[in-house]
Design a protein around this nucleic acid. Structure first.
Lengths: 194, 194
DNA sequence: TAAAAACGTTGATCCAGATCAACGTTTTTT
DNA sequence: AAAAAACGTTGATCTGGATCAACGTTTTTA
């Protein structure tokens, strides 16, 4: 399990992890299994963990006044799940994150992060690279959200994250794209013909 | 001029800038004036500068096939203008940034950033804090874009950045919010009564 | 293995917000 | 000072995608 995380870090930062780094990571991250439908965090919680997805699939969403889920992020293998703002600043999260498949995670607590990792150079580099990437992606998603038609959003997702279509049902993809399942169904029917 | 930038940095990072830091900043950043309607960057450019707004107002946008502007970000005093992804990675920017008011900027070149600043601890801290903030804001804006009605978007902007309404005309605000100027005009009329 | 969820599709209808158009006012340019 | 942009408003109309509803199929649960 830990090798997935090591590989992920090594492929993200410039210098490879040392034996000591790897030993430390192995000690501090601990495995956590989530069954389908189990929550990782719930709205109102302060998010005290960051979770690396070794296996499985999760979704992050809010629930509005009518009970409707609005999905903001989808996570599969080698993604980080959590609410970074809540984790970093300590504010309550507005999000739910739950497992859509049975999942295996590697979790680090806020305490361990702060006390044992936050000063290590490989961690700051990892954190900076991932935050920057996240920010670039969000800028593109915001622009898409405001300018593309439903069909264009669908096509863009097929180009950027085709894996999602293998891992999540259509109603979840639809919500992630900011449209209804009916609209996505109609678009798929229409584009299949082309 | 430079004092605005010094003040901004000091209020963003934990430790205050030293005399040496301030001297270096004063040497490396240079003043640039933009007249109303002048471009800071244009689509297709590689963005080789980062600009701190000392005075004025700018907008960042794309232009679609029909010639319509889609505004993604608005900048006023003490904001950073530029395309960070293009600046950092060297890819061509899809955005235009131009001055909506005559503006005074403090600009740093990519070369100077890389060679003279990027290893300084106050710069990495500044960069990390700003990137993280940016990312948190974008997440909220994406969520708002996908879940709020036009009226709710308007009210949220009044709460978060009321200054914008003093500095930009309604058609620019409307585009920033992802709606037409007519819709914004009708919303304002309706909410004024309440 | 039967019942119940979850999922995907299709049709009918509705509506928030876009589009198109015209016009008055204010600001900028010459 | 006149002409031209830029700006904001209002009305009429249109439409992309939402909503509501029903139904068949697949998967999960008891």
């Amino acid at each position: 399990m830990i090798n997935n995380l090591i590989g992920h870090i090594n492929s993200t930062i410039n210098n490879k992890l040392t034996e000591d780094d790897i030993r430390l990571i192995s000690e501090i991250f601990h495995a956590k299994k989530l069954r389908k439908h189990q929550y990782l965090i719930q709205s109102g919680d302060v998010c005290k963990i960051a979770a690396f997805v070794v296996k499985g699939a999760l979704k992050k969403y809010t629930i509005d006044a009518t009970g409707k889920e609005n999905i903001l992020e989808l996570y599969i293998e080698n993604w980080w799940a959590g609410d970074k703002e809540s984790f970093m600043i300590g504010t309550p999260t507005p999000y739910y994150i739950d497992a859509y498949e049975d999942s295996e995670l590697l979790v680090i607590s806020k305490d361990d992060f702060t006390n044992k990792l936050s000063n290590l150079s490989f961690i700051t580099e990892l954190n900076n690279v991932l935050t920057e990437r996240q920010s670039f992606q969000l800028m593109k998603r915001l622009h898409s959200s405001q300018t593309l038609t439903a069909e264009q959003k669908y096509e863009q997702l097929q180009d950027t994250y085709p894996e999602f279509f293998q891992r999540f049902p259509q109603h979840i993809i639809a919500s992630y794209l900011g449209m209804t399942k009916e609209t996505l169904s109609r678009i798929r029917k229409a584009t299949a013909k082309k």
